[in-house]
């Protein structure tokens, strides 16, 4: 008995697609409903993203300084300059390294914590809150806290080292600054943990019970049931963490040693960011706000966007082999 013979026209399901016969399967999923559901985002996206991006693309072909009216078209000059700029390449390499280390660690960490804390044991709520707490603290404050902890002369860590008789380590400057940056980003594991916790809830208990009755130990249950069911969420975290990590800007700026002597208002200045923390976006920020080169900065932003796009495409492509969906994502039935 097919569904079509049970369909009642009175329920309002259109039977025919407007001029697009695609086979009986398609008649169950009218396109307009899809668009009805996704329309809020489409409208918002166009206005708030597409327009600025177009503006930035135009900007990248000029030498606009952000304020004055005297600018000229320079065509692809900004892009060729970027291609030959060693600073750009160095920052790109550093960003790649940062992502390569931070992303897997934060995924594994978040997942690990979620697995540990998913049990209904005592004080789990307290632990969950403790691990999520850093995510609640605004970025400005977290960087300040890390600086206070790792300050060479007045910080907690060197205080402990001194107590044990070890000389103070200058954590916040090269070559240690990079490690501190990674630690700061891992401190926010709680966000990922929360997402994985939610995902773990969706695993049907019967599946796990049935498996343990069949004699599967915890490791096999994890590998064959938990992981596959969780894979959409893992994929989600991987892609989004990768995208945001490649765009990291604020933490390196905030971790840089003090800039002005207080009297200048403590402005964040990209020139004091340590080499180890000199990520791509830091250079972009410098181009915009230290050197007033809006055109060049816009070109760099478009380049980054394309790099992220390429990297994400690779990850997306690979996802078909390891991400498991109940509802197949490309239109064919499971």
């Amino acid at each position: 008995m097919t569904l079509l013979t049970r369909q009642d026209p009175a329920t309002g399901h259109p039977v025919a697609r407007a001029g697009r016969p695609r086979g009986r399967r398609w008649k169950r999923y009218p396109t307009w409903k899809f668009y009805a559901f996704v329309s809020p985002w489409v409208i918002g996206c166009l206005a708030l993203t597409a327009v600025p991006m177009g503006y930035a693309l135009l900007l990248s072909f000029t030498d606009f300084d952000g304020l004055s009216g005297n600018w000229r078209w320079v065509g692809l000059d900004n892009y060729t300059t970027a291609f030959h700029d060693p600073v750009v390449w160095a920052s790109l390499r550093r960003t790649g390294l940062y992502a390569l280390i931070a992303v897997p660690l934060s995924l594994a960490g978040g997942l690990g914590l979620a697995l540990l804390l998913n049990q209904r044991l005592r004080a789990m709520g307290v632990f969950r809150t403790i691990f999520y707490l850093p995510s609640v603290v605004p970025v400005v404050a977290t960087a300040l806290m890390f600086k206070l902890v790792f300050d060479r002369d007045t910080g907690l860590v060197n205080g402990i080292l001194a107590w044990v008789g070890i000389d103070a380590v200058p954590w916040l400057i090269d070559p240690h600054a990079f490690t501190i940056l990674i630690m700061l980003s891992l401190w926010g594991l709680g966000g990922g943990m929360v997402i994985f916790l939610a995902g773990l809830q969706a695993i049907p208990a019967e599946l796990l019970e049935a498996a343990s009755v069949d004699g599967a130990g915890p490791l096999r249950r994890f590998w064959h049931i938990t992981l596959p069911v969780l894979s959409p969420m893992i994929f989600f975290q991987l892609v989004l963490t990768l995208i945001t990590t490649l765009q990291t800007l604020v933490q390196p700026l905030l971790l840089a040693p003090a800039v002005s002597g207080g009297a200048g208002g403590g402005a964040t200045d990209a020139t004091h960011v340590q080499q180890g923390d000199f990520l791509y976006m830091v250079n972009v920020y410098a181009q915009f706000f230290s050197y007033q080169k809006y055109g060049y900065g816009a070109a760099l932003l478009w380049i980054l966007f394309l790099v992220i796009l390429a990297v994400t495409a690779v990850v997306l492509r690979s996802s078909t082999s390891w991400v498991h969906y109940e509802v197949d994502q490309d239109g064919s039935e499971q």
């Binding site: 600086k147 206070l148 300050d151 060479r152 002369d153 007045t154 910080g155 200058p170 916040l172 400057i173 040693p257 003090a258 002005s260 002597g261 207080g262 009297a263 403590g266």
Partner: peptide, 26 residues
């Protein structure tokens, strides 16, 4: 003095106020 090899996290004011700078330029 506080420089690239001897960074301070805040600014020279509190460090002077803690009695840790002998001469400062302000």
């Amino acid at each position: 003095g506080s420089g690239p090899l001897d960074p301070i996290s805040d600014w020279q004011g509190p460090v002077y106020g803690a009695g840790r700078i002998a001469v400062v330029s302000y």
